Simulated assay, not measured.
Amino acid sequence: MNPLRTRRATVAVAAAVVLSFTSAGFAHGAAGGVLRDDGGKITIGIKFDQPGIGLKTPDGKYTGFDVDVATYVAKQLGHDPKDIEWKEAKSADRETLLQRGDVDFIAASYSITPKRMEKVDFAGPYLLAHQDVLIRADDNSIKKPSDLNNKKLCSVTGSTSAQNVKTKIAPNAQLQEYGGYSECLTGLENGVIDAITTDDSILAGYASQPEFKGKFKLGGFKLSNENYGIGVQKGSELKAKINKALEKMVADGSWQAAVDKNFGPAGYKNEPAPKIGVVVQ
């Protein structure tokens, strides 16, 4: 066998492998922790319909606590705000978006649970919320969790909130699952729904909107602990990088500033910043 021909063949094969990895590896999403390399862009999943958490405004802007956290994290990963492509991550779609590589990471009121950890990894937690209910301001029939029995209780498809209530607190509650919390809110306002259940941070965001001032109130029930994490693909190196970014956000005061900015107007009493890697049961 000609040694020179062998060496040339080896170099050609190696070059082809490198070219294949470069064209394919950097085009997909977060698998293996590799971000997209298309002009510095990064794709982040957030909620589009949760005031105070993740909201796409009529003029095309994005606001909320999760948006601020995600923007900070992206900057620590080397991406300016203009590099961010925001993608809607509905509750029922979050694992699929990550597994397909449609997004690099998700910050969308995404509670860390054992079932979800079988499919994706989580950085964080970065916020400890509690499940609560939102009811009409003039409704005096729901004063304690068990009063939800025989009431029409709304949550969104894919959320664990309503199931928690029916399984553990009010087995006779009538569950209504809608595509988004804004739909639940319309039902509550019109009297079709008696209560909405999800995290207190999300409910406080809705209750604080100017158009709903005085119409709704929080039940004040701490029905569960919800540890918000940032979802990444299983095995992604991004998890460690995002954790470092979150630790820095807390240390330099940016985390508390984001809490005050997004939840302060509603008088939301937030928990202190959680320790990274510590999930409160």
Results as ranks from 00 to 15, higher is better:
residue 125 P to Y: 03
residue 277 G to M: 12
residue 234 K to C: 11
residue 122 F to G: 04
residue 91 S to R: 03
residue 37 D to M: 15
residue 260 D to F: 13
residue 84 I to M: 08
residue 89 A to G: 07
residue 11 V to L: 15
residue 127 L to C: 03
residue 199 D to V: 10
residue 71 T to N: 00
residue 184 C to R: 05
residue 23 S to P: 06
residue 80 D to C: 00
residue 92 A to H: 08
residue 26 F to D: 06
residue 77 L to R: 01
residue 213 K to I: 08
residue 178 Y to I: 12
residue 12 A to G: 09
residue 37 D to H: 15
residue 88 E to F: 03
residue 83 D to F: 05
residue 64 G to A: 05
residue 248 K to S: 09
residue 157 T to Y: 12
residue 277 G to E: 12
residue 49 D to L: 13
residue 256 Q to R: 12
residue 78 G to S: 01
residue 158 G to W: 09
residue 187 G to E: 08
residue 99 Q to R: 11
residue 245 A to D: 07
residue 214 G to T: 09
residue 45 G to Q: 03
residue 90 K to S: 06
residue 192 V to L: 13
residue 10 T to V: 10
residue 22 T to S: 15
residue 54 G to Y: 07
residue 279 V to N: 03
residue 34 V to P: 04
residue 37 D to C: 14
residue 100 R to N: 10
residue 16 A to K: 11
residue 158 G to V: 08
residue 239 K to D: 00
residue 59 D to M: 06
residue 31 A to P: 08
residue 235 G to A: 11
residue 252 D to V: 12
residue 39 G to I: 09
residue 20 S to Q: 14
residue 87 K to V: 13
residue 189 E to Y: 15
residue 238 L to G: 02
residue 120 V to A: 00
residue 78 G to L: 03
residue 21 F to R: 10
residue 50 Q to H: 15
residue 176 Q to T: 15
residue 188 L to E: 08
residue 266 A to E: 11
residue 59 D to R: 00
residue 213 K to G: 03
residue 181 Y to R: 07
residue 187 G to M: 07
residue 3 P to K: 15
residue 261 K to I: 07
residue 97 L to E: 01
residue 69 V to H: 00
residue 87 K to S: 11
residue 153 L to I: 04
residue 25 G to V: 05
residue 273 A to Y: 02
residue 240 A to K: 11
residue 242 I to F: 08
residue 256 Q to C: 09
residue 54 G to S: 13
residue 216 F to I: 04
residue 130 H to K: 10
residue 74 A to R: 04
residue 37 D to N: 14
residue 168 K to P: 09
residue 112 I to A: 03
residue 16 A to R: 14
residue 226 E to G: 05
residue 43 T to P: 09
residue 147 D to I: 07
residue 141 S to T: 11
residue 230 I to H: 08
residue 78 G to E: 00
residue 189 E to P: 07
residue 79 H to V: 01
residue 68 D to P: 05
residue 58 P to Y: 02
residue 35 L to W: 07
residue 97 L to I: 03
residue 97 L to C: 00
residue 273 A to W: 06
residue 55 L to W: 05
residue 123 A to M: 07
residue 214 G to N: 13
residue 213 K to A: 04
residue 206 Y to F: 14
residue 205 G to L: 07
residue 155 S to L: 05
residue 204 A to F: 10
residue 141 S to N: 05
residue 146 S to H: 03
residue 100 R to H: 01
residue 176 Q to P: 08
residue 262 N to I: 12
residue 86 W to P: 04
residue 121 D to W: 01
residue 214 G to D: 13
residue 58 P to F: 00
residue 33 G to D: 10
residue 49 D to A: 13
residue 86 W to D: 02
residue 272 P to E: 11
residue 259 V to C: 09
residue 173 A to M: 06
residue 2 N to A: 10
residue 259 V to K: 02
residue 236 S to N: 01
residue 152 K to E: 08
residue 268 Y to H: 12
residue 155 S to Y: 02
residue 72 Y to T: 05
residue 233 Q to M: 07
residue 160 T to K: 07
residue 165 V to D: 03
residue 78 G to Y: 02
residue 249 M to R: 02
residue 252 D to S: 11
residue 248 K to L: 14
residue 238 L to K: 04
residue 216 F to S: 01
